[in-house]
Amino acid sequence: MSTNMTSLPVTLLAVPAAKNGRLSAFLRQPTFVAGLLILGVVMTLACVADLLYPGDPQDLVGPPLLWPFQKTEFQLGTDSLGRDIAAGLVHGARVSLIIGFSAASIGLLIGTLVGAVGGYFGGLADNVLVRVTELFQTVPAFLLVVVIVAIGEPSLKVIALAIGIASWPTIARLVRAQFRSLREQDFVMAARSLGYSDTRIIFVEILPNALPPVVVTASVMVAGAILTETGLSFLNMGDPNVVSWGSMIGDGREMLRTAWFLTALPGTATALTVLALNLIGDGLNEIFNPRMRER
């Protein structure tokens, strides 16, 4: 680029080339690509659930307790009431993904705000916010989710909110540490001397620089939220109006001795989706942490 600055086409080409460099860094990692592929398949299935299996997955559609591959009509078998397992899995994917992403967004929002305010301003505000964060970290997160769901009603919205409220402290600690180191840097000093407001410095100047580790943690948070929702609906505290992987595991538990596939299938679906998110998280981590990349 430096040799041929006058030639317009070359400079135009240079920008996409730099982006390709980042992109190929992502695509060079087999684990990252595998994670993307698995998550892509799960997302696609969740999106086309109504086309593949129209109708309510809670409907009784066939003979009970068919094993997988026993009948072509029900590829993955039926449960003790005669509900189609494959339909439940595909519709359950939708519930898990919705909960996972919305709960993580809520947790990210609260955690980023708390961490940014505490880390940027320091002093009394920081002290109070650190105490509040510690308070939330000492209470077992799962128990907090159970209590919040009991306060509201077991609907998807309340469950997502509860998981978000229980999961923000990790993000808050991370963002706070980032802000504390970044606020001393020259570009923040420059922004201050230009008379920018605190809000502008926090959101426009510091936050974009603090994001890389947050992005990595975000994928792990989505994974954690999916696991929490599975545990919650396993305990019969999930939304009773939808089929989720956790409630399928809970229903299958009664038949564990004779029809263990009822438990194995939804659990495998959960593990695979969470695995995909963790693979993506690991891939992001290697790319954003240059020190790790050397190894």
């Binding site: 538990r253 564990l256 695995l275 998110l277």
Partner: peptide
Amino acid sequence: YSAPGFWVGLM
């Protein structure tokens, strides 16, 4: 790291 612990328990 990815499998729900209680599900591993059931398995």
